[in-house]
């Protein structure tokens, strides 16, 4: 930190960074820092400590060091002979489902969000706010209620199935509730605005003359999209992807209501350990595993995205 501050003063030589000014900056930062330290790092630290302790018999923890919590993230012991160890396939399935569904959600949100954001960005200035406003309407209703509404649409006696049966396309309802598809649908619906908004912000800044220059230099509409628009709105895609992927991987309400007990995601598994499972150390270890997963995915993602940006020759 000190080092960075030092660099900064070197670069911006016109701005005199007097000690007094320095202090003032810290005072201004203090409230935000306090919140961050106590509300984010504090609990995280507690979770970290818990993950290395043994579970209490009615929830909670007992203060004795144990690696069992971490061990159980990936492995399970035979009920009768604890010495027999096998991979915990149930957990691994949930990990995989979380990652895969979150990726799918991010991708579908990007695919659906791009034309939506483009549509808004190309409306006349005074009508854009109305469209943005419409995009945020889902946020006004409680997440639970919205998820129940989706249930109403896709359940066996729901809107889709009864309509299809009424018109004779199918005889028996298509099972959509309590499947991965239901979770995917629910998350895509809930998180779409989080993709549209940063994409719109990027497109709003996009100078129309770059597109004209592209057309002028013999690019077709498709080529302008591929070579000019997409690279220039990439920051919007990155921001949108991060905003969608992170809450997706930790989603709790949507998989709980739409996936039920059969299609669990990480959030539900963690909740289970702190609730019925009464295994707080395992829950903590799972939570931290998810954290590592998310950070790892982000680093990987941003690295690949930036590598593409490097000039190819030289």
């Amino acid at each position: 930190m000190d080092d960075m501050a030092g660099n900064k003063t070197e670069q911006a030589t016109e701005i005199k960074e007097t000690p007094k000014r320095h202090l003032w900056n810290w005072i201004l930062c203090a409230p935000a820092l306090t919140v961050l330290v106590f509300a984010a790092s504090g609990p995280l630290l507690i979770v970290l400590v818990y993950s290395f302790l043994a579970p209490g018999s009615f929830g909670g923890i007992t203060w004795s060091f144990s690696l069992e919590g971490w061990f159980r993230v990936f492995f399970s012991r035979d009920i009768f002979d604890p010495e027999i160890v096998s991979l915990n396939t149930a957990h691994l399935t949930i990990f995989w489902r979380s990652i895969s569904l979150s990726l799918q959600t991010t991708i579908i949100c990007a695919i659906l969000g791009f034309p939506t954001a483009w549509f808004i960005a190309t409306r006349p200035q005074h009508t854009r706010n109305i469209w943005l406003f419409l995009i945020t309407i889902p946020f006004w209703t409680n997440l639970l209620i919205r998820t129940f509404a989706i249930q109403e649409v896709i359940r066996n006696q729901g809107l889709i199935n009864t309509t299809l049966i009424r018109f004779g396309f199918i005889d028996t309802p298509i099972q959509m509730m309590y499947t991965d598809f239901a979770i995917f649908l629910g998350m895509a619906y809930v998180f779409l605005p989080l993709m549209v908004l940063p994409l719109y912000a990027a497109m709003d800044k996009l100078d129309i003359r770059y597109l004209e220059a592209g057309y002028d230099l013999y690019a077709s509409r498709w080529q302008v999209l591929r070579h000019i628009i997409l690279p220039l709105v990439k920051p919007g895609f990155i921001a949108g992807s991060i905003l969608v992927f992170i809450p997706s991987i930790g989603a709790y309400v949507t998989p709980r209501l739409l996936g039920g007990g059969r299609s669990m995601m990480l959030g539900n598994l963690i909740e289970l350990q702190f609730g019925q499972g009464r295994n707080w150390p395992l829950g903590s270890a799972l939570a931290l595993t998810m954290l590592v997963l998310v950070v790892g995915a982000l680093v990987l993602y941003i690295r690949t995205v930036n590598r593409e940006e490097e000039p190819r020759h030289g």
């Binding site: 100078d207 003359r209 004209e212 220059a213 002028d216 220039l232």
Partner: peptide
């Protein structure tokens, strides 16, 4: 026909 734009409009990326 090609154009040299007033503010150049060079592709920044």
């Amino acid at each position: 026909v090609n154009t040299v734009f007033q503010n150049y409009a060079l592709f920044p990326h």
